[in-house]
């Protein structure tokens, strides 16, 4: 248990976060873990894709080539997804939702590359939930003003306020725990299959990878973005 709050199990079942190296940060021992490394790989992948897409779109042709086609397809899909659930507010949030969608999606898919998905670390999903929380309340104050926020807090009766407050705080926790637990359950099951059935685990775990990494990962990404959009457009209101 030297690596902070890292899980530890028996030697051949391995779904834990490992420390890669530690360093001193203002007198605290801070660990660079496998999560950081995997996230760095995911980020490099996304940044590389973004740079390549940027270069292609600068010299965009009337009849798109293969790569330009793919980039346009992705952007169009994400834009339509945001537009379908946020309506006229879509313009402001399409960038954020699009980037967070791609990030979580590639994070969840990174299990296919043999990495431990960064989203199976609560330290990654909690900030994502907190960003959503900040977005919700920033937009609530911006569009409904203090009076509207107070009225919403005391919704049926004023003494209901603490319960409403708890329900506000529960939003980022449930959002982040949902993503975390879904990805973690996939990681645990894959680790059990590879650790306990290591002799028989030839070929057929690919089916499990398709379910846990691709299907479940894509669905959870969609759910996270969908709920973020729903909460934020709920906070903005009709005006």
């Amino acid at each position: 248990m030297t690596n902070g709050i890292l899980l530890n199990g028996s030697s051949d079942i391995d779904f834990m976060i490992h420390g890669v190296f530690s360093y001193q940060f203002f007198g605290h021992e801070v660990w660079i873990t496998t999560t950081h490394v995997c996230m760095l790989i995911v980020m490099l992948l996304l940044i590389g894709f973004a740079v390549a897409a940027n270069r292609v779109m600068k010299h965009a042709t009337e009849v798109p080539g293969a790569f330009q086609n793919v980039v346009e397809l992705i952007v169009e899909l994400l834009d339509n997804m945001v537009k379908a659930s946020m309506g006229k507010n879509a313009v402001k949030f399409a960038n954020y939702i699009g980037s967070i969608f791609l990030f979580i999606l590639i994070c969840n898919f990174s299990g296919l590359l043999g990495l431990r998905p960064p989203t199976a670390d609560y330290g990654v999903t909690l900030p994502l939930g907190l960003i959503t929380f900040t977005l919700i309340h920033f937009n609530k104050f911006k569009h409904k003003k203090v009076k509207g926020v107070l009225r919403e807090l005391c919704d049926p009766w004023p003494f209901w306020a603490p319960i409403n407050l708890i329900s506000y705080i529960a939003v980022p926790i449930s959002l982040s725990l949902r993503l975390f637990a879904n990805v973690l359950s996939g990681v645990v099951i894959m680790a059990l299959v590879y650790g306990l059935l290591s002799i028989f685990a030839i070929g057929w775990p690919a089916v499990l990878h398709v379910y846990f990494d691709l299907f479940s990962g894509a669905i959870q990404t969609y759910v996270f973005c969908m709920l973020t959009m729903t909460y934020v457009s709920d906070a903005i209101g009709d005006e």
Partner: peptide, 20 residues
């Protein structure tokens, strides 16, 4: 996927009990 969350809370508790 949203309904699944409550079950996964149980899973998280189980994993905490077993490994942490």
């Amino acid at each position: 996927a949203v309904a699944e969350t409550t079950g996964l809370y149980g899973l998280v508790i189980a994993l905490l009990l077993l490994f942490v």
